[in-house]
Design a protein around this nucleic acid. Structure first.
Length: 862
RNA sequence: GCCCGGGUGGCGAAAUGGCAGACGCUGAAGACUUAAAAUCUUUUGACCGAAAGGUCGUGCGGGUUCAAGUCCCGCCCCGGGUACCA
């Protein structure tokens, strides 16, 4: 089965074993098995034209090592791969060249697949998925349909990046300093009709679910902050001249007595009501200025506060104080109620504003600093209430509850919770994405449809989703699941349709259809309206879904990639459950991982899934930097191409090097000398175990030989360390241990074939090709990948004698070889006999002896 | 600003509170070779010293401890996230 090469010829060995694995189905996962399951998942790649990069190789090698280790340890391992293939580059390429994105995508996928295979990753390729395949995105649409049905999808006018010169909407990352990345044209904010998913309905659930996840703490913190739950109170302020109330949200109801002015956002609906005629002109001017501010301006100008007075006053519910109402853009309409009470004494921003406009500052929280003086203002920390009437003297935390409770008696306040998390803008004005399974019909036709009670009405939400354009109101109605997939129509025009509509807007035959309310069938409006049944005019949604959509649930489809009846077969779902381990970069710490959790929790709620969370254990591999320590990028010219490394040193060396560079989670700079070093190690392994003419090294003894105790102990230490290190993803130290063993083995006269095979097994997850080759030559049965992982014998791990350090006053002064469990007195006697020790003790007496058996003997003397 | 990470030789790094620098790279010297490559051996934190040996040393300053890279307090620097979230 082995190749016939005489020396370590990786170029012959690697393709040979890759073909072998494929033919044998070595890494095919069984959908049911007596073995425990282990589902290891990589964040699937976007198949870009640039091909696989060093970071992909690191990611997949790391998970592969774990997967191969689990396979050898008796698990039924599922390690799949697929393609997150919708996305902008293919579409931009299509606009430029007219090549259909599907063609570019297929070409890139072929390249990626071949590259991953060349790395030797143990993937079950029979489960490969592709988000742009209608058999896949049918279920993406199906999930959307369910979100829609459950009232979690709605439309709203939302600001997007509109580039008039390009006639299109741009993603945030395509806008650099307020200009389009392509062409450098100005980009403005424009309100366009957008689909939005109600992720905020899951805010608490998303927060609570984080608790039990084995994720990096920093990632959990990021998600927690992103959700940004804050507890406080809603307070209603009466107005001096109106019956309406001004509703504000605050986390500091304890500072109510310190409120000296109110601020509402420039877009606040009560601006007109509150603006006095004499202020009207200033207010209008301010509103206009605020509305034209680009994002850049907003952050740029953030340092300098601005605002205008409305002329109106509110009444502080705690003390009846008359408080002026201002308009300022440091209050955002999108958070809370878009209105605040300003407490300049205890809020930095309010303090800055009050200073600028000479508004009063009243201290209501007192705390002493180190020297006993009152903390300087603004002060936002803990303290005791002052200037707060009956609440004086209370701790501020206690005061929060008491003040809210008191106001609640008069219905002037109640406890409330706010989130930073916003609903998820889910539509893109693009061609290369999943079409929404949505049709827009006129209000009057909608009534006809509702009365029909057909497959369409099964998918209607509790409240209709409407939008108005001019005098017309349209209602969103679902394309029923039976009609899915709603495939992306063919076109050769990938340019946007203008006015912010996607390229799909150009395809009138696809967009304008007759809909049979009884069946959900459609025909183009260019054809006559069919006579049989009730057909209404409908216009298809021309937006497409964002790239996140397909990546929100792909891990489920690997379980049952070809099922055309259901998203995943319940038996397979129950067997495999959620991934046991998820590996991918931390750039997805918030969005992808939050969106996927949202969909997963939703699918759980509607009974499609059972486990509450998708990714119980998560790991971020660190990025691989260029030789210069900077992020790899074409423009820097520091990109390392895995294919080049495979050609020059082999996939095994590339894998081993990327794992040896440092901790898996750390960012690490590439070094050409480094890969040379591990390549040298592999050649050494070969040289010390394999013979000159393709046989075995003369030191290898096939049978009847027991290795010397030193070799055996080192081997078992290595079994232990490599296994533990793989479990903990400490690949670099596992490799170091294998090097230590090999350095020793190279010095022995004889080595049993048995031990050599064990070593090769340990090496196999890291350098699988050369390990297979040596395994076969050493007489191993079948594939080393499926050979049972060796078990170490604890009895062989330790020696009888250990070297312990002799320290005097904490400084190393010698070393002593003593029995492992030697008593303190014996060690002390032996130590004192050492010349150097005696020297350092001369003229001193020992005050204290600290003996840690097997480690150190510390003598405290003076 | 705030929230996470992280600062250890010439370099990548290792170290359950127990002899800092394992392992690898680089450099130096030597062996083998006609020669080179490959390989093998020795050496490679800084400073003082001919050597034996000594002193210092894990970003900085304190502290706890018989003992601190590791624990505590206060800073500095670098990387990532976030951006007036009331």
């Amino acid at each position: 089965m082995a190749t016939h090469c005489k020396d370590y010829n990786f170029a012959a060995i690697e393709p040979h074993w890759q073909a072998y694995w494929e033919q044998q189905g070595t890494f095919r996962a069984e959908d049911s098995s007596d073995r425990p399951k282990y589902y290891i998942l990589d964040m699937f790649p976007y198949p870009s034209g640039a091909g696989l990069h060093a970071g992909h190789a690191e990611n997949y090698t790391g998970s592969d090592i774990l997967g191969r280790y689990k396979l050898a340890s008796g698990y039924n391992v599922l390690h799949p791969m697929g393609w997150d293939a919708f996305g902008l580059p293919a579409e931009q390429y299509a606009v430029k060249t007219g090549t259909h994105p599907a063609i570019t995508t297929a070409r890139n996928i072929d390249m990626f697949r071949a590259q991953i295979k060349r790395l030797g990753v143990a993937i079950d390729w029979e489960r490969e998925i592709n988000t742009t395949d209608p058999r896949y995105y049918r279920w993406t649409q199906w999930i959307f349909l369910n979100l829609f049905k459950h009232g979690l999808a709605y439309v709203d006018k939302r600001p997007v990046n509109w580039c008039p010169a390009l006639g299109t909407v741009l993603a945030n990352e395509e806008v650099i300093d307020g200009k389009s990345e392509v062409g450098g044209h100005p980009v403005e904010r424009r309100n366009l009709r957008q689909w939005v998913l109600r992720i905020t309905a899951y805010a608490d659930k998303l927060l609570a679910g984080l608790k039990d996840l084995q994720w990096p703490e920093s990632t959990k913190t990021q998600q927690t902050n992103w959700i940004g739950r804050s507890e406080g109170a809603t307070v209603w302020f009466a107005l001096e001249d109106h019956h309406d109330l001004l509703e504000i949200y605050t986390t500091r109801p304890d500072t109510l007595f310190g409120a000296t002015y109110m601020v509402i956002a420039p877009e606040h609906p009560m601006v007109d009501l509150l603006t006095k005629p004499e202020q009207l002109e200033t207010v209008r001017a301010y509103q206009a200025k605020a509305s034209t501010k680009s994002d850049l301006d907003r952050t740029e100008l953030a340092k300098e506060k601005s605002g205008v007075f409305t002329g109106s006053y509110a009444i502080n519910p705690v003390n009846g104080a008359r408080i002026p109402i201002w308009i300022a853009d440091y209050v955002l309409m999108g958070y809370g109620t878009g209105a605040i009470m300003a407490v300049p004494a205890h809020d930095e921003r309010d303090f800055e504003f009050a200073t600028l406009f000479d508004l009063p500052v009243i201290r209501v929280i007192d705390a002493a600093d180190a020297s006993g003086d009152s903390m300087p203002l603004p002060y936002s920390g803990a303290g005791t209430l002052v200037n707060s009437g009956e609440f004086d003297g209370l701790a501020h935390t206690e005061a929060k509850d008491k003040i809210v409770a008191k106001l609640a008696e008069r219905s002037a306040a109640r406890k409330s919770t706010n989130y930073r998390l916003r609903d998820w803008l889910f539509s893109r004005q693009r061609y290369w994405g999943e079409p929404f399974p949505i049709l827009w019909v006129k209000e009057s036709d909608y009534q006809v449809l509702v009365d029909s009670k057909g497959p369409v009405t099964d998918w209607l939400p509790p409240e209709p989703v409407r939008y108005s354009e001019g005098d017309d109101t349209f209602v969103a109605i679902p394309v029923p699941a039976s009609q899915l997939p709603l495939t992306l129509p063919e076109t050769d025009n990938y340019r946007p349709a203008g006015d912010g509509e996607s390229p799909l807007g150009n395809l009138t035959d696809w967009v304008n259809v007759w809909l049979d309310v009884g069946t959900g069938n459609t025909v183009p409006q260019s054809q006559p309206r069919p006579e049989q049944g009730v057909w209404i005019a409908a216009r298809r949604e021309t937006n497409t879904m964002p790239q996140w959509a397909g990546s929100c649930w792909y891990y489920l489809r690997y379980l049952d990639p070809n099922n055309d009846q259901t998203l995943v077969d319940p038996d397979k779902r129950d067997y495999w459950g959620s991934p046991d381990f998820y590996v991918g970069g931390n750039e997805h710490a918030v969005l992808h991982l939050l969106y996927a959790r949202f969909w997963h929790q939703f699918l759980c709620d509607i009974g499609v899934l059972k486990e509450p969370e998708p990714f119980r254990r998560l790991f971020h591999q660190g990025i691989i930097l260029g030789e210069d320590g900077e992020k790899m990028s074409k423009s820097r010219g520091n990109v390392v191409n895995p294919d080049d490394c495979i050609a020059s040193h082999g996939a095994d060396s590339l894998r081993l090097y990327e794992m040896f560079m440092g901790p898996f989670e750390d960012a690490k700079p590439w070094s050409p000398h480094g890969i040379e070093g591990v390549h040298r190690f592999l050649r050494k392994v070969w040289r010390e175990l394999m013979g000159q003419e393709g046989g075995l090294h003369p030191r290898i003894v096939q049978s009847g030989y027991f290795d010397d105790p030193e070799t055996l102990r080192l081997l078992h230490q290595t079994i232990k360390k490599v296994g533990e290190d793989i479990e903990n993803l400490r690949f670099n130290t596992a490799i170091a241990q294998m090097m230590i063993f090999m350095n020793h083995a190279g010095k022995t006269d004889r080595l049993s074939a048995q031990s050599a095979r064990v070593f090769v097994q340990l090496l196999a997850p890291f350098a699988p090709h050369v390990a297979e080759e040596m395994w076969a030559r050493l007489g191993g049965m079948g594939s080393v990948a499926r050979a049972l992982w060796p078990v170490f014998d604890p009895a062989l791990l330790e020696t009888d004698e250990v070297a312990i350090g002799i320290l005097i006053n904490g400084k190393p002064r010698g070393e002593l070889l003593v029995a492992k469990d030697a008593p303190e007195s014996e060690v002390l006697d032996a130590a004192r006999k050492q010349e150097k020790v005696a020297q350092h003790l001369e003229g001193k007496s020992i005050r204290k002896v600290v003996y840690v058996p097997g480690k150190i003997l510390n003598l405290v003397a003076n």
